[in-house]
Amino acid sequence: MKSEIIWMIIGMGLVTYIPRMLPFLLFQGKELPPFLQGVLKNVPYATLGALIFPAIFFIQKDDIWYGVLGACAAFLVSFLGANVIVVVLSSIVVLTVYSYLM
């Protein structure tokens, strides 16, 4: 093992762990102002929007419709009330079938 790579991995690990851990240490037992609490309650849904778009359109680099189809399949199956695993598996199946047809 090259020691430079090991140091790089340790450094990457530290700078990744610290932002993950720090909020729990800083805000332990503290009551944040109501406005800030409200903002943090909004974060999951805003993050999900940002995590899905635009990245889902680029899962297949030359064919934007591939991502559009995957997104539509996931939205539809999920809207019908299926649980997350079913949503995941059916999107995979839809796209696999699509690539065989194309």
């Binding site: 849904y45 999900l48 929007g49 995590l51 899905i52 990245a55 889902i56 899962i59 297949q60 591939y66 991502g67 995957g70 997104a71 399949a73 996931a74 939205f75 199956v77 999920s78 809207f79 009330g81 299926a82 649980n83 997350v84 079913v86 949503v87 995941v88 059916s90 999107s91 995979i92 199946v93 796209l95 696999t96 699509y98 690539s99 065989y100």
Partner: peptide, 20 residues
């Protein structure tokens, strides 16, 4: 083909978490 179609998995999961 499987590699590409499985690439949708995490996004589908995000959608499955969001839609309800």
């Amino acid at each position: 083909t499987l590699q590409e179609s499985m690439g949708v998995a995490l996004y589908a999961m995000f959608i499955g978490l969001l839609v309800p």
